Computed example of a mutant assay.
Amino acid sequence: MRIVSIHAAEANLSRLIDLACAGEEIVIGRNDGPVVKLVPVRTSAGRRQRGSLEGEVVVPDAFFDPLPAHVLDRWEQ
């Protein structure tokens, strides 16, 4: 983890952005400690594929049972 001052971050922002995009953790701080973390924005990995978790997730039969009356009442409030 690299901690830089606000002044240093202003002077080296482009380089710090490149480092963050390369996976390095960049923290910008003041005298009293860390303030913010510079992280890259991740793009979407694309559309999810239907059935990709088939066989890995088990839904118990009780999941489909009707909800108790006191729970249904809460939904209508």
Rank of each mutant, 00 (worst) to 15 (best):
L53T: 10
D32C: 02
G29D: 00
E76F: 11
L19G: 01
Q49E: 14
D73R: 15
A45S: 13
G33N: 05
A8D: 15
L16A: 01
G46Q: 04
V41K: 13
Q77L: 14
L67T: 04
R74P: 01
A11T: 08
F63D: 01
A11S: 11
P34A: 14
D65R: 08
V39H: 00
E76V: 12
H70F: 11
A8K: 11
P34E: 11
M1S: 13
S14D: 13
I26W: 00
R30D: 11
L13F: 12
S5E: 02
V35S: 08
R2H: 05
D18H: 10
Q77P: 03
A45H: 07
A20M: 03
E24V: 06
W75M: 15
A62Y: 06
A9N: 04
I26D: 03
V35E: 10
W75I: 15
D32I: 11
V71W: 08
E76N: 13
R47W: 08
R50P: 10
D65W: 06
A20Q: 06
K37L: 03
V71L: 15
A22W: 04
F64G: 07
H7G: 13
V4S: 04
L67H: 09
H70Y: 10
P60I: 00
E56L: 14
V57W: 04
P34W: 00
R74I: 09
V58R: 13
V57D: 04
L38I: 00
A8C: 04
A11V: 09
R47A: 14
P40Q: 02
R74S: 13
R74N: 08
E54W: 05
N12Y: 03
G33F: 02
N31C: 10
S44L: 08
Q49T: 13
A20V: 02
K37S: 12
L72H: 07
R48W: 09
D73K: 15
A8S: 14
E25N: 10
A11K: 15
S14G: 08
S44G: 09
R30V: 10
L53I: 06
V41C: 07
A62P: 01
V58A: 11
A62H: 07
A20R: 02
V39E: 12
D73P: 00
E54V: 09
I6A: 11
D32M: 07
V4H: 01
